[in-house]
Amino acid sequence: MITAKNLTKRYGEAFALDNVNFTIEAGESVALWGANGAGKTTTIRCLLGVHSFDGELMVNDVDVRRNSKKARRMMGYVPQEATFYDMSVLETLTFYARLKKTPLPRIDEVLAQVQLADHSRKHVNALSGGMKQRLALAVALLSDPPILILDEPTANLDVAAQRDFIHQIQALNRQGKTIIFSSHRFDEVMALASRVLVLDKGKLTLECPPPALVEKLGLQRWMRLWIPPEQRDSALQVLQSQGYAYRPNAHTVYVRIGDAGKVAPLRALESAQIIIEDFDLLDGELVPSEEV
């Protein structure tokens, strides 16, 4: 169990965290949600004991401030963009396994777990972004810690790599690991979190289950569609007739994703013979103005 009491972090006069209180039970998957500068990463660094702070932070009865190294033994950390020394995958894992006092045969297990077994001889610089994140996850899992801490772990990954990574974290959570991750991707929070801690300017402003975010924060999900110019007017008519909120843009059309999910507007357009050249999701964006 993790408890934070009056967790406060100051940089000079500025508060990065201001009297934050929370409890995270074993086996939970908790998202730290907020805009840039809200205090998500600072919270993670305090949890890891690499930042000094005021207040109390306990990880499984270990006082992080007094014994951060012992607390870190119970946590595996995956940064937003892991940077490794100039070594191969296997050498990297061997180095960190030794630091974590992990028996070396465990390396083969984690390599298989993160699907990097075929890449163990590769130099880390030869890995893709997704593979590097998986290597960071492998390092985090070496000592089989009960807690995983992830700082915007999919921020720099492509869509396929994001999906794979999220599936792996979901599986680890099902196996009983406590997951704490920061994100500003709504999809990620919906897929991974059982609870969300909303931070705003260093203050904990809300604790709720992920679906409640939409209602409580006035959060709306949008997708952007690329439609051929000659079909654009027809597409807007279809969206209007089906009751979708939309916003035409120079070369694209923004469509709000309602309760029916993101496939519904795509199907509506498809059944009207509208060609959708491409689309993407604007995760966690606040409601765009000039809604039609």
Binding site: V50, S68, R72, L99
Partner: peptide, 14 residues
Amino acid sequence: ENGTLAYLLAQPVN
């Protein structure tokens, strides 16, 4: 500068 020091310090070392 390249972040390896921060990553190393996030492990159980001081």
